[in-house]
Protein backbone atom coordinates (compact mmCIF):
# COMPACT_ATOMS: atom_id res chain seq x y z
CA UNK A 1 0.00 0.00 0.00
CA UNK A 2 1.21 3.50 -0.73
CA UNK A 3 1.95 5.70 2.25
CA UNK A 4 -0.72 8.15 3.27
CA UNK A 5 0.03 11.02 5.54
CA UNK A 6 -2.87 12.99 6.88
CA UNK A 7 -1.00 15.80 8.52
CA UNK A 8 2.28 15.37 6.78
CA UNK A 9 0.98 17.14 3.71
CA UNK A 10 3.64 19.78 3.37
CA UNK A 11 6.31 17.12 3.47
CA UNK A 12 4.54 14.73 1.13
CA UNK A 13 3.74 17.52 -1.30
CA UNK A 14 7.35 18.55 -1.34
CA UNK A 15 8.29 15.18 -2.67
CA UNK A 16 5.72 15.12 -5.39
CA UNK A 17 8.17 14.51 -8.18
CA UNK A 18 9.39 11.23 -6.67
CA UNK A 19 5.82 10.36 -5.83
CA UNK A 20 4.70 10.71 -9.40
CA UNK A 21 7.82 9.06 -10.68
CA UNK A 22 5.91 5.89 -11.60
CA UNK A 23 4.17 8.02 -14.17
CA UNK A 24 7.38 8.78 -15.94
CA UNK A 25 8.34 5.19 -15.98
CA UNK A 26 4.90 4.03 -16.91
CA UNK A 27 4.99 4.27 -20.61
CA UNK A 28 8.50 3.32 -21.58
CA UNK A 29 9.31 0.98 -18.79
CA UNK A 30 6.13 -1.02 -19.01
CA UNK A 31 6.69 -1.48 -22.71
CA UNK A 32 10.35 -2.14 -22.41
CA UNK A 33 10.53 -4.07 -19.20
CA UNK A 34 12.09 -6.98 -21.01
CA UNK A 35 15.00 -4.86 -22.26
CA UNK A 36 18.20 -4.44 -20.31
CA UNK A 37 18.41 -0.68 -20.01
CA UNK A 38 20.85 -0.44 -17.13
CA UNK A 39 24.53 -1.11 -16.97
CA UNK A 40 27.50 -0.55 -14.69
CA UNK A 41 29.78 2.26 -15.75
CA UNK A 42 33.10 3.67 -14.64
CA UNK A 43 32.99 7.23 -13.41
CA UNK A 44 35.77 9.55 -12.41
CA UNK A 45 34.70 11.56 -9.42
CA UNK A 46 36.44 14.63 -8.05
CA UNK A 47 38.42 13.95 -4.88
CA UNK A 48 36.85 15.73 -1.92
CA UNK A 49 38.91 16.25 1.25
CA UNK A 50 37.88 13.92 4.07
CA UNK A 51 35.80 15.82 6.62
CA UNK A 52 34.99 14.90 10.19
CA UNK A 53 31.42 13.66 10.61
CA UNK A 54 29.81 14.02 14.03
CA UNK A 55 26.49 12.64 15.16
CA UNK A 56 25.29 13.42 18.66
CA UNK A 57 21.80 13.45 20.19
CA UNK A 58 21.89 14.59 23.81
CA UNK A 59 19.08 13.47 26.08
CA UNK A 60 18.11 14.36 29.63
CA UNK A 61 19.08 11.59 32.04
CA UNK A 62 21.27 9.75 29.53
CA UNK A 63 25.05 9.50 29.36
CA UNK A 64 26.14 11.56 26.34
CA UNK A 65 27.43 9.48 23.44
CA UNK A 66 28.80 10.70 20.16
CA UNK A 67 29.99 9.17 16.93
CA UNK A 68 32.84 10.66 14.95
CA UNK A 69 33.60 9.27 11.49
CA UNK A 70 34.95 10.67 8.23
CA UNK A 71 33.46 11.34 4.85
CA UNK A 72 34.77 8.97 2.17
CA UNK A 73 34.74 8.86 -1.62
CA UNK A 74 31.39 7.45 -2.69
CA UNK A 75 32.80 4.42 -4.42
CA UNK A 76 35.34 3.62 -1.66
CA UNK A 77 35.14 0.61 0.65
CA UNK A 78 31.90 0.46 2.69
CA UNK A 79 33.84 0.01 5.95
CA UNK A 80 33.46 3.29 7.88
CA UNK A 81 36.61 5.24 8.66
CA UNK A 82 36.98 5.90 12.39
CA UNK A 83 39.60 8.54 13.12
CA UNK A 84 41.50 7.54 16.24
CA UNK A 85 43.00 10.87 17.21
CA UNK A 86 39.87 12.88 17.86
CA UNK A 87 39.17 14.84 21.04
CA UNK A 88 35.57 15.67 21.92
CA UNK A 89 34.69 18.38 24.43
CA UNK A 90 31.11 18.95 25.56
CA UNK A 91 30.27 22.29 27.16
CA UNK A 92 27.39 22.10 29.63
CA UNK A 93 24.86 24.91 30.27
CA UNK A 94 26.80 25.74 33.43
CA UNK A 95 29.88 26.40 31.32
CA UNK A 96 31.71 23.32 32.51
CA UNK A 97 33.69 21.54 29.80
CA UNK A 98 33.62 17.73 29.82
CA UNK A 99 36.04 15.85 27.63
CA UNK A 100 34.37 12.66 26.38
CA UNK A 101 36.33 9.43 26.43
CA UNK A 102 37.29 7.70 23.21
CA UNK A 103 35.70 4.33 23.84
CA UNK A 104 34.03 2.84 20.74
CA UNK A 105 31.07 0.64 21.60
CA UNK A 106 27.47 -0.29 20.86
CA UNK A 107 24.48 1.21 22.66
CA UNK A 108 22.30 -1.86 23.18
CA UNK A 109 19.14 0.16 23.85
CA UNK A 110 19.36 2.42 20.87
CA UNK A 111 21.11 -0.20 18.76
CA UNK A 112 23.81 2.06 17.45
CA UNK A 113 27.53 2.50 17.59
CA UNK A 114 29.43 5.35 19.18
CA UNK A 115 33.06 6.39 19.47
CA UNK A 116 33.03 8.78 22.43
CA UNK A 117 31.12 8.62 25.71
CA UNK A 118 30.62 10.83 28.74
CA UNK A 119 31.08 9.88 32.38
CA UNK A 120 27.71 10.66 33.93
CA UNK A 121 24.07 11.15 32.90
CA UNK A 122 23.21 14.55 31.55
CA UNK A 123 20.81 17.04 33.10
CA UNK A 124 19.01 18.96 30.38
CA UNK A 125 16.05 21.31 30.69
CA UNK A 126 14.19 23.14 27.94
CA UNK A 127 16.14 26.25 27.07
CA UNK A 128 19.51 24.81 28.15
CA UNK A 129 22.29 25.37 25.62
CA UNK A 130 25.14 22.92 25.11
CA UNK A 131 28.35 23.33 23.14
CA UNK A 132 30.43 20.83 21.21
CA UNK A 133 34.04 20.95 20.09
CA UNK A 134 35.63 18.14 18.10
CA UNK A 135 39.22 18.31 16.87
CA UNK A 136 42.00 16.02 15.73
CA UNK A 137 45.74 16.12 15.25
CA UNK A 138 45.39 16.99 11.55
CA UNK A 139 43.98 20.36 12.44
CA UNK A 140 40.37 19.58 11.63
CA UNK A 141 37.93 21.20 14.06
CA UNK A 142 34.17 20.91 14.29
CA UNK A 143 32.06 23.07 16.60
CA UNK A 144 28.41 23.43 17.33
CA UNK A 145 25.80 24.52 19.84
CA UNK A 146 22.33 23.18 20.54
CA UNK A 147 19.47 24.37 22.71
CA UNK A 148 16.89 22.01 24.11
CA UNK A 149 13.38 22.78 22.78
CA UNK A 150 10.31 22.72 25.02
CA UNK A 151 8.39 19.51 25.39
CA UNK A 152 5.13 19.30 23.42
CA UNK A 153 2.76 16.68 24.84
CA UNK A 154 0.76 14.22 22.72
CA UNK A 155 -2.88 15.11 23.40
CA UNK A 156 -4.50 11.95 22.12
CA UNK A 157 -3.98 8.70 20.28
CA UNK A 158 -6.88 7.10 18.39
CA UNK A 159 -7.24 4.19 16.05
CA UNK A 160 -9.91 2.72 13.80
CA UNK A 161 -10.21 -0.65 12.08
CA UNK A 162 -11.53 -1.06 8.56
CA UNK A 163 -14.53 -3.19 7.66
CA UNK A 164 -12.62 -5.97 5.92
CA UNK A 165 -12.76 -9.67 6.86
CA UNK A 166 -10.88 -10.59 10.02
CA UNK A 167 -7.75 -11.79 8.20
CA UNK A 168 -7.44 -8.47 6.32
CA UNK A 169 -8.58 -6.26 9.18
CA UNK A 170 -6.22 -3.34 9.70
CA UNK A 171 -6.27 -0.15 11.71
CA UNK A 172 -4.96 3.31 11.19
CA UNK A 173 -3.64 5.48 13.99
CA UNK A 174 -4.17 9.18 14.65
CA UNK A 175 -1.96 11.21 16.97
CA UNK A 176 -2.91 14.76 17.94
CA UNK A 177 -0.99 17.54 19.62
CA UNK A 178 -1.30 21.29 19.98
CA UNK A 179 1.18 23.51 18.19
CA UNK A 180 2.21 26.69 20.05
CA UNK A 181 1.23 29.81 18.16
CA UNK A 182 4.07 32.04 19.31
CA UNK A 183 6.90 30.20 17.59
CA UNK A 184 7.83 28.44 14.38
CA UNK A 185 8.01 24.81 15.34
CA UNK A 186 9.32 21.58 13.92
CA UNK A 187 8.46 18.06 14.90
CA UNK A 188 9.38 14.49 14.35
CA UNK A 189 6.82 11.80 15.13
CA UNK A 190 7.84 8.16 15.25
CA UNK A 191 5.74 5.06 15.71
CA UNK A 192 7.39 1.89 16.90
CA UNK A 193 5.77 -1.46 17.44
CA UNK A 194 6.40 -3.24 20.76
CA UNK A 195 9.76 -1.60 21.51
CA UNK A 196 11.62 1.55 20.59
CA UNK A 197 14.60 -0.64 19.78
CA UNK A 198 12.65 -2.19 16.93
CA UNK A 199 12.56 -0.72 13.46
CA UNK A 200 10.18 2.20 13.36
CA UNK A 201 6.85 1.73 11.60
CA UNK A 202 6.43 5.35 10.59
CA UNK A 203 8.58 8.43 10.82
CA UNK A 204 7.18 11.87 10.02
CA UNK A 205 9.04 15.16 9.93
CA UNK A 206 6.70 18.16 10.19
CA UNK A 207 6.64 21.90 10.38
CA UNK A 208 3.83 24.24 11.38
CA UNK A 209 3.98 26.40 8.27
CA UNK A 210 0.37 25.76 7.35
CA UNK A 211 -1.22 25.26 10.76
CA UNK A 212 0.65 27.39 13.23
CA UNK A 213 -1.08 27.46 16.59
CA UNK A 214 -3.60 24.80 15.60
CA UNK A 215 -4.21 21.22 16.56
CA UNK A 216 -1.96 18.86 14.60
CA UNK A 217 -3.35 15.47 13.67
CA UNK A 218 -0.98 12.96 12.16
CA UNK A 219 -2.36 9.78 10.66
CA UNK A 220 -1.18 6.56 9.14
CA UNK A 221 -2.64 4.27 6.55
CA UNK A 222 -4.47 1.07 7.50
CA UNK A 223 -1.39 -0.83 8.54
CA UNK A 224 -1.72 -2.12 12.11
CA UNK A 225 -3.17 -5.37 13.38
CA UNK A 226 -5.39 -6.07 16.33
CA UNK A 227 -3.22 -6.63 19.39
CA UNK A 228 -0.37 -4.42 18.23
CA UNK A 229 1.32 -2.37 20.93
CA UNK A 230 2.39 0.96 19.51
CA UNK A 231 4.84 3.43 20.98
CA UNK A 232 4.36 6.93 19.66
CA UNK A 233 7.14 9.47 20.21
CA UNK A 234 6.73 13.14 19.44
CA UNK A 235 10.02 15.02 19.25
CA UNK A 236 9.91 18.80 19.32
CA UNK A 237 13.03 19.60 17.30
CA UNK A 238 14.90 22.76 16.53
CA UNK A 239 15.17 24.21 13.04
CA UNK A 240 18.83 23.26 12.43
CA UNK A 241 18.08 19.60 13.15
CA UNK A 242 14.96 19.79 10.96
CA UNK A 243 17.00 21.26 8.09
CA UNK A 244 19.71 18.63 8.54
CA UNK A 245 17.15 15.83 8.32
CA UNK A 246 15.50 17.47 5.33
CA UNK A 247 18.79 17.94 3.50
CA UNK A 248 19.90 14.35 4.11
CA UNK A 249 16.57 13.15 2.81
CA UNK A 250 16.78 15.43 -0.25
CA UNK A 251 20.34 14.34 -0.99
CA UNK A 252 19.37 10.68 -0.75
CA UNK A 253 16.29 11.14 -2.92
CA UNK A 254 18.29 12.93 -5.61
CA UNK A 255 20.41 9.85 -6.20
CA UNK A 256 18.48 8.01 -8.89
CA UNK A 257 15.86 10.66 -9.55
CA UNK A 258 16.52 12.43 -12.86
CA UNK A 259 14.06 15.17 -11.92
CA UNK A 260 15.58 16.09 -8.57
CA UNK A 261 18.13 18.82 -8.03
CA UNK A 262 20.82 17.47 -5.70
CA UNK A 263 21.22 19.58 -2.60
CA UNK A 264 23.99 20.05 -0.11
CA UNK A 265 23.91 18.73 3.44
CA UNK A 266 22.86 21.42 5.93
CA UNK A 267 24.81 20.41 9.00
CA UNK A 268 24.04 21.76 12.43
CA UNK A 269 27.78 21.95 13.09
CA UNK A 270 30.50 24.10 11.61
CA UNK A 271 33.82 22.91 10.19
CA UNK A 272 32.58 19.47 9.26
CA UNK A 273 29.46 17.48 8.61
CA UNK A 274 26.84 16.20 10.98
CA UNK A 275 24.31 16.89 13.65
CA UNK A 276 24.48 18.01 17.27
CA UNK A 277 21.12 18.44 18.98
CA UNK A 278 19.27 17.97 22.27
CA UNK A 279 16.22 15.71 22.21
CA UNK A 280 12.94 16.82 23.77
CA UNK A 281 10.07 14.41 23.42
CA UNK A 282 6.84 12.97 24.72
CA UNK A 283 6.08 9.27 24.37
CA UNK A 284 2.78 7.41 24.69
CA UNK A 285 1.80 3.78 24.32
CA UNK A 286 -1.42 2.36 22.93
CA UNK A 287 -2.62 -1.20 22.43
CA UNK A 288 -5.00 -1.78 19.52
CA UNK A 289 -7.89 -4.00 20.51
Amino acid sequence: MLPFFVSDFPRSVKYLPPFVRPLVALLPLALLSACDLQKDIDVELPALPAQLVTECYLEDGQIPRLTVTETTPYLASPIPVLPLDVTVVLTLPSGRRDTLRFQPGIDSVQMKGYTHIGRRPLVARPGDTFGLEVYDTKGRRVTGTATMPSRIPIDSLEYKFNDRPAEDRKAYLLASFQDPAASTDFYRLQIHKDSISSERERDFTLDDRLNNGKLFTVGTSYQFDAGDTLLVTLYHIDQPYYLFRQSVSDARNANGNPFAQPSGIRSTVQGGVGVFTVLSYDRKQIILR
Binding site: L48, V53, Y74, P80, K112
Partner: peptide, 8 residues
Amino acid sequence: PAGRFSVQ
Protein backbone atom coordinates in the same frame (compact mmCIF):
# COMPACT_ATOMS: atom_id res chain seq x y z
CA PRO B 1 27.76 12.44 -5.43
CA ALA B 2 31.51 12.46 -4.93
CA GLY B 3 31.49 11.51 -1.27
CA ARG B 4 29.29 9.96 1.38
CA PHE B 5 28.89 9.53 5.09
CA SER B 6 26.74 7.35 7.28
CA VAL B 7 23.88 8.54 9.46
CA GLN B 8 22.74 6.31 12.31
